[in-house]
Design a protein around this nucleic acid. Structure first.
Lengths: 333, 333
DNA sequence: TTGTACGCGTTATCAC
DNA sequence: GTGATAACGCGTACAA
């Protein structure tokens, strides 16, 4: 069942069938109807491979993410996929894990599949060492690279980021204004967004004349129990803190659990602010105040930018989206 | 940059290049090395479209799910994608939502992309009315259809399911054995797995000589707050229950919140059992006893079955995987 | 062991 | 408004 069969049954040439197929206006209404009727009768579907061969595109975008089961990334993938499909594009998903070699391997794999663009979802794709990002910059000469919540400078590379610095700066400032003095900051990694968050924290302290102290800045695996244990051990060591800001909701859940175990009143004695405003923030008692990183806006902006790139419109290489602080019961403001 | 360029530079025919490309043993070691060297120098990558056109396959599988941001499905997608990629297949993701028309539309879309198989992830793709599943059964004549946690009878349709009936049966039986008498069952939908779970609940009661009562079987949207409010209103109406089993962890979280608000002791006065053993079950205090539906096993089995189908091996049309009850602090056994 | 020639199904470029 | 025909790049009989 191909274009020849249709042309034969309709008594026209394959060129005419192709024109009907692609909405070319140079076809008489009568011919068009005849061809469409035959297509319908024969249940004809164009062969995407042949089309791809001719056009050198299959209208397919590669989405890379480190772990699609992470709540934040799962949301991002959902919005990206729906957005792409609304524009007639397919999404090939690629879960890379966190290893650089694997990321590069999958990146090349997607390129060899001739996807029309690659979306890097999440802040884990930009490495601290510039040379580790060379493969991305180089690839961008072939196809647009879109970063969701990550930033990389380069031709044909477009970033859409949440203003993490302002978000944490604002959250920390509010904690300080409400009388908190020793804010613990717990983060998971030194990614692009991780660094921005941390700087936001430090700058908020500095703006109130407080020198950030290393003992109040702690790294922790992205895991509820790990965060709980970390805070318990800090507590046992005698470290004092009256507030916690975490770089992810799961760590904030761990903080709530810590407070329950140590019998510390939330938010009277301890304030807690999480990040991402995920489902997790609404599971605990009290529910967690969390910074909403606006995944949906991030993703729709990414898709819009990409479509702009495809249509040759001039688009910004970097778009910043403001976050929201969703106030719940782990803070008293 | 194509196979002709390589053949020219290497001083061989395109056929030989093709043989090298596909690991055909009928090439002398010397020629092979020469060709590989040229490929490397030229940075040659085979064109997948041309290959797809000839072979009529792009080694790509369509994964349909209603909502990839749902924790359970996000996990499933992760394991499916990784499993497929390990076998050299790409995954096209397609988030359909819950509307039947949309599901059919996307199903046809994937078929028109000539994917090698379609995986339906989650129990939301099998409708109660047989005629609403006709489109799946019909499509199965063209390509294998794999159901993850759903069952549909038909040629070339393969189901991998969790034994939901046994899971809930076991959970309810343990609650009864521990002295609970009025177990509330809260479910979200009448899907394949939804019905099995409910039957497991009913059968467990019957086996102990208890007649299931409609007032203890309630439907509820898959939402923390909705579940909390439902239980609160049942409580206010004076309905008595000393245990709750829910068809999803999010509902169980709602149940925990209800107990906190109504000042009911868990598990002394109220036992709670959730479903899916997701991250949510570990967020609350007390942490929730939950039925582990073995997503990973479900997915790897699905992939293995699919690979079996591709290689012509005889595979079972239905595989059942046993679930686990993960005991935490909302039950006293 | 290697090469030639054709088919795969579409789009695009002509000529009419 | 329509038709003939050349790409597109690969796999693979078949011939050598």
């Amino acid at each position: 069942m191909n274009i020849y069969d249709v042309s034969e049954h309709a008594g026209v040439s394959i060129a005419t069938v192709s024109r009907v197929l692609n909405g070319n206006p140079n076809v008489s209404e009568k011919t068009r109807e005849k061809v469409l009727k035959v297509m319908d009768e024969l249940g004809y579907t164009p062969n995407v491979f042949a089309r791809g061969l001719g056009l050198n595109t299959m209208k397919t975008i590669g989405i890379m993410c480190s772990d699609s089961s992470d709540p934040y990334l799962a949301g991002a993938i959902y919005y990206l996929e729906r957005g792409l499909r609304a524009h007639g594009y397919d999404a090939i998903l690629c879960c890379t894990g966190y290893d650089l070699d694997a990321k590069q391997k999958y990146f090349d794999l997607l390129r060899s599949k001739r996807v029309d663009a690659i979306i890097l979802a999440g802040s884990k794709f930009v490495e601290m060492r510039a040379k580790d990002n060379a493969y991305i910059i180089e690839a961008a000469s072939d196809l647009p690279i879109m970063l969701v919540n990550g930033f990389l400078e380069g031709e044909n590379i477009y970033s859409t980021v949440c203003d993490d610095h302002a978000a944490v700066y604002g959250a920390a400032s509010q904690l300080l204004s409400s009388g908190r003095r020793r804010i613990l900051y717990v983060y998971t990694s030194y990614s692009y967004s991780g660094v921005n968050k941390l700087e936001g924290y430090k700058d908020a302290l500095k703006s109130k004349g407080i020198t950030p102290s290393d003992e109040l800045i702690r790294q922790c695996p992205k895991d509820i129990e790990a965060a709980r244990e970390l805070l318990l051990s800090l507590h046992r060591e005698g470290l004092e803190f009256d507030a916690v800001i975490t770089s992810d909701d799961s760590l904030a859940v761990g903080a709530v659990k810590y407070a329950h175990i140590a019998d510390i009143s939330i938010p009277r004695v301890l304030s807690i602010i999480g990040y991402n405003n995920s489902l997790l923030a609404r599971c605990t008692d009290p529910e967690i105040t969390s910074i909403d990183s606006k995944v949906e806006a991030l993703c729709t902006t990414t898709i819009n930018t990409l479509m702009g790139v495809f249509s040759g419109v001039n688009v910004p290489s970097r778009t910043t989206i403001a976050s929201d602080l969703i106030k719940r019961k782990t803070t008293n403001f």
